[in-house]
Design a protein around this nucleic acid. Structure first.
Lengths: 257, 257
DNA sequence: CGATGGCTTGAGAGGCTTCAATGCCGGTGG
DNA sequence: CCACCGGCATTGAAGCCTCTCAAGCCATCG
C-alpha cells in the first residue's frame, strides 16, 4: 500500500519499520481522524497534570517533553520530530505527567483518544504496534538516562546529535551530511542536563576536532564514523528493521473478526 | 476476586491499581504459565542484545536494568522490586536493549512471551493494561532523567529513596517508617549518576538533617513530609488510580469473543 | 535604530570525582 | 573460638569538570 499525503503518512512509515501490518490495518491507521493545529515557538500544547483527550502527532517543527524541578529548572526528557506521535502513551494514561512544548513553530495533528481506542479494540495487531512504539520511546529515554548519568559533556552532546541525525534520516546514514535541527543551545542544554554556556563550549570542542558543526538551526556531521565512535553511539536501541517483527504472530489464533 | 498465592498475585495487584479488569481477565492473568528461577547476587539474567523469549517477574530480591558507556561505566536505568514485571516490554521488542541484573539474591518467575501474546490477543483489555504498565515504567524513567539531569546530589538521592519507599508501600505512606532495600551505596550511585563516595557523603548529610537514615540493606524515613518536600517528590507519576481508568471502555463495541 | 533573543567569551567558584587508605562486619575455616 | 578474609562503608585531600555571573557580540525584526 502506498502512503498518499496525509500527515499520518510519516507516522505510518515509522510504525511499519517496527511492526508488520496488513493493508487493511494500514488503511485503518491512515483514516484516523485528526485536527491540525499551529503552535508558536515556546508554547506548551500539553500542560502538566492536564487531562488529555487527544494524542499529538508532530507534523512539522520540533517539540520537547519537559519535566521540572522546583526552582524553574527545566529538563527535557524527550525530543519529538516530524512523524513522531509525541503523546501516544496518553491514550492509555490520560493524565499528563509532563508538559509538551513547541521548541520552534510547530504544526501538530491532534487525534482523539476515542478514535485510537476504537482502532486498537478492532485491530489487536495495531494495539501491539502502538504498544511497541511506546516501548521504543522508553528505550530512547533509557539511553538518555545513561547519557546524562554517565557521559562527559562533550560525549553527551555528540551522542544526542547522533541520535537526532539517525532519527531524522531514519537510519540511512552516510559519512558526511547536514540536517536542519531547530533547537537552540539552550534547548540542547535542557536535554543534556547541562547549561547553555557549557553546551556552547562543547560545540566548539567538537567543531575543532573536526567531528561536527552546530549552526543556528542545523547540524553538520563531518565524519559519521568518527563521531558515532566518539559518542559511544549504538543505534540498536532505536529498534529498527533489523530486529524480528512480531515473531509470534504466525502462531496466534486469528481472532480479529 | 481474591488473589490466592501465586507469584503473579503481586503483579496483578499492581496492574489492578491502574486498570480495571473483569474477574475473567484477572483469572486469565493469574493462570499465566511461569517457571521460577533463583538468581545469585550480581548476576545478569538478561544480557544486552540477547533475543529474549520470556518476561521476568521479580518475586523476591531486587533487580536493576543496566546501560553502559564504553569504559565500564555502568548506569542503572531502572530498579525493579517484587511484583514488578521487569521485562514486560520485551514481549513486544524481544531484542534486549539493556541488561537485567540481580542486585541481591533474587528469585524471578519467567513467563513465556508466547503465553503473553496469546493472552493479549484474546483479551484486548489486558493488552491495554500491559501497554499501560509499560507506559508507567516509562514515566518513572522520565522522572529519572529529570532527577539525574537537574537535581543536586542530595536531592537526587532523597528523591530516589522517596520513589522506592512509595513503590514498596504501594503509596500507603506514614510519617515515619523503615523498609528493607538491599541495594549497596554503589548501586545507588549507579542509579543516580554519582560515585559511591559521594553517595556516602550525601547519606550522611541527609542523616544529619534528620530526614532519613540509610543502613546496610534498609532505609529509614524519619519524616516523610519534610523528606518528600526536600526531594521535590510528587508521586503523581507513579500512581494512576486518581485518573480515570480506561475511560473509553464504556463506549467500545464488545468485540472480544 | 533600538530592542530582542540567541550566541560567545572570560574569570572565579564550587560540586563532584578521583585516588587512596582505613574501618567495619559477617562469613569461613582452622 | 578466634584469626583471617572479602566486600562494603567511611574518610581525607587534591583536582577537574561544570556552573555561575557577567559582559559583549551578532543577527533579526519592528
Amino acid at each position: 500500500m502506498m502512503p498518499n499525503d496525509t500527515p499520518l503518512d510519516a507516522f505510518l512509515v515509522k510504525v511499519l519499520r517496527r511492526s508488520l501490518l496488513t493493508d487493511e490495518e494500514q488503511r485503518a491507521i491512515l483514516s484516523l481522524p485528526f485536527r491540525m493545529e499551529k503552535i508558536e515557538a515556546q508554547r506548551d500544547f500539553v500542560r502538566m497534570g492536564e487531562q488529555v483527550t487527544h494524542s499529538c502527532l508532530i507534523v512539522t517543527g520540533l517539540a520537547g517533553r519537559f519535566g521540572q524541578g522546583r526552582e524553574g529548572n527545566r529538563q527535557i526528557t524527550a525530543l519529538h520530530i516530524p512523524g513522531d506521535m509525541a503523546d501516544l502513551h496518553s491514550a492509555v494514561t490520560p493524565q499528563a505527567t509532563s508538559a509538551l512544548q513547541a521548541l520552534t513553530a510547530t504544526t501538530i495533528a491532534k487525534i482523539p483518544h476515542q478514535a485510537i481506542h476504537n482502532l486498537v479494540a478492532r485491530y489487536p495487531d495495531i494495539a501491539e504496534a502502538f504498544w511497541r512504539e511506546c516501548v521504543v520511546d522508553a528505550a530512547v529515554m533509557s539511553e538518555w538516562v545513561v547519557n546524562i548519568g554517565r557521559r562527559s559533556a562533550a560525549v553527551r552532546l555528540a551522542h544526542l546529535c547522533c541520535e537526532m541525525a539517525f532519527r531524522y534520516r531514519l537510519g540511512e546514514m552516510v559519512e558526511h551530511f547536514v540536517f536542519t535541527f531547530p533547537a537552540t543551545q539552550h534547548h540542547l542544554a535542557d536535554s543534556l542536563g547541562l547549561t547553555s554556556v557549557h553546551v556552547n563550549r562543547m560545540i566548539r570542542v567538537l567543531e575543532s576536532s573536526g567531528l561536527m558543526k552546530v549552526r543556528r538551526g542545523m547540524i553538520e556531521i563531518l565524519d559519521w564514523d568518527d563521531l558515532s565512535e566518539f559518542a559511544e553511539f549504538d543505534p540498536t536501541y532505536l529498534v529498527f528493521e533489523d530486529s524480528p517483527r512480531t515473531p509470534m504472530r504466525a502462531s496466534l489464533p486469528a481472532l480479529q473478526n
